[in-house]
Nucleic acid binder design. Sequence first.
DNA 1: ATCTCCCGCCAATCA
DNA 2: TGATTGGCGGGAGAT
Length: 836
Amino acid sequence: MGPVTTPKKGRERACVDPWTPTSNLKMLISAASPEIRNREKELCTNSQGQTVLDPSQDLETEEDTERIISRKEKSLGLLCHKFLARYPDHPNPDVNNNICLDDVATELSVERRRIYDIMNVLESLHMVSRSAKNRYAWHGRSKLAQTLSILKQVGEEQKYSQQMLNIRQRPTENIFDCDSKENEMTEEEEEAQKELFFVELPGVEFRAASVNSRKDKSLRVMSQKFIMLFLVSDPRVVSLDVAAKILIGEDQDAYQDENKYKTKVRRLYDIANVLRSLKLIEKVHVNDLRGKKPAFKWVGPEEFPPVEDLETSKKRVALQSRASAENCAKNLFSSPNNNNKRGFTRHASLIKLAKSIQDDRRKINSAPSSPVKILPKQCCVGDVPNKMAQLAAICKIQLDQESGSKAEIIQPPVRLKPADPPQPSPLSPAPEPSVCLAHPTLLSAQPPGSVALCSPLIPVLLPPQQEGAPCPVYLCSSLRTNAASRPPPTSLAVRSMTFEEKGEAAAGARGQLVSGVSDVSPVALKRLNSELTSESCPSKAKRVDPNFKDTSPKLGHILQVRLKARRGAQLTSRPRALHLDPEFVNTPGPAGANPPIEQCLEVFLDKEDKTSESEAGLGPIRAVPLTPGQFHTETLVPAGYLIPISQQSFIAYKEIQSSGENCRASPSNIFQTPTAGSRPCPAQEVTPTSLRLHKLTATPSPLGVQQAHRLHSPSPAILNFTLQNLGLISNPVAQTPEPPNGLPSPLSLQQRGMLFIKPGSPVPVHQAASPQQVAFISLQQPLMTTPKGTALHPHTFFHTPVPLSPLAAVVTSAGHAAPKPVYIPQRKLDVTTEES
DNA sequence: ATCTCCCGCCAATCA
DNA sequence: TGATTGGCGGGAGAT
């Protein structure tokens, strides 16, 4: 009587006499009328949509029902219907929209296998997204229009309409007739559909490596392509035959095999059944030369949201991301064989890529210069790190070039910024006036404008993931999209988050480049995510991805578009930064119950001081963007992150409305960090390492970095004052009431070398140096827990000199900055077996 | 006879 | 190594 298993057929069940008068009667009635039968069936279904399987009471009925249940009643479509009935079409992103496969399977009394079928199709429509093992996030139809719009475009680009036309016009031919097949498709058509890929929707990406890495996403992909066929055909009718042929067309191996065709048809039925339950298609019949053929008619939405630039770019990003990744991989790690592979070139490429990366990583880990207990005074640019940096830089450049078709100009020399969102998104108004708040140190050490620390996206080298590849990662604090939905963080949360980041990737990579980059590694995140969700801890699980994504879909999309546009050859191409969110955001707790962020911050810092004081200077960059009102939220950005607090907060605040006045919508409370604040226009960006470079330049002594930071920093008070006068911030004192609980006042933040900025009334910005965002950054590296979750002692970190930055080479070549050693805090390097 | 498509084996992956 | 995913196709109900 396992609840999850499919009920056995009557004859297989225990031999309780099923032929009671009652059951006979029911059977006859049911047989006589489908309606009655259905009602009967529904009666057997409790309010939760769960078939009653009470053996004691309903055994008779159940058996009868099962005996009576026709095939139709077990259909995937009906199952999907039940499934859909459980969730709203337009779910509130703020609520728990998690879907637990086990629960669903149990409640619907079906095997998980069937649920997978449904989920795969729903996933293709972005009605759900996989958030973790056994867990999906329900999006309902909130993204449906957008998805369909994108699919339509992709379908048009794939020339599906032409293909369908060709197939239809073809005389009665056998699909397995190679001759006819060959003239069926023009070369360009073939070319167009060479790649079988899944169209991702920014904001709804696959969360599981399994989904991404597994080359076989056929049901998902088939579903999307099937839908595309409808969307590009004039009479929105697609015959099963044509659809199967087209889909087979992408699978060359299937041409010759009739069995493959049959399989395709089966799958199409599976998909169609789900789509039918979604009321997107209906079954019809079409007559052609060969007579009546089964077909499906599109009955879903006809009008999609106007394909704006944003939409286009989204789609493009989705499409390009792969190409970029592939090219990047190919170029970096030439793999001649997979250049023109059909289907899943990327997969193959990434395998090699991953290997290369792993090799590199091993070298790094074993590099003599790698673990350095104490920061050397001079940085000896390690070979491997340098290589990694170069690779990252190359990768970035390539990405920029490839995605640069959209308005992104790589400002050769210093503009390390990986190009702005390819699309003129209203959310990412590139040329917007903004306030660039440079770190005090930088301000003092550098002429304003010489180094614009403002970059919404910071390229960093991602530590090799299992199947990952080295690629530049652009961190965007804008992840904190749904600030509005986030409860105010607590100091505990801050601390917790700091230490919760785990994963060997994080640990191992920490020292490779901008430390902390790895903290957001998908692996670590995934693990965490899994941990959170797989422990039957709904409250926790709920806090993961789905929430932050749903709460601000637009922003999420934008961010992902940006990130995608630049992401490298990572198969699991997911924006790293986004994955940070779950850890930082959604801190449980009533919204109003938490102390002001300042207090939290102070507490946190105090604690931090105790624990990490011993660390030599270099630490994590913590950005704590404080947003107004309900936007109380913090952003912890591990060291190495260039914090682009920019649009993020206020975007969440005022989504797009202020495309031209971003600055105005800046967060109310912002802590400026050395790296924070950036604006697109200066076109000069510095990675965290670059920043350090400056510091080091000023203060060669590694141990003195932090100190130097303070020494060279202009008085934060002055800076604040200036900013206040500029109208960029409000009076911190005035706006920050003294913490009642005796917590340090914001001023102490300044004493810590941090700039505490409270955005006052947004004011038009300053060109020269105006970040769109502000961030609070401390220079303490938060300790990361080991993969096992053990907090590392500060002493377990080494400071390893690394090349200037992944982009150092670029910068250098540009003649702007000479490669200088940069020391970054690094955890004791362990060659983790899991990684190698 | 053909259309539909349920069902569950089992391989690929993941944890 | 067990669990999760999901490709796949046999084969049976529906038409």
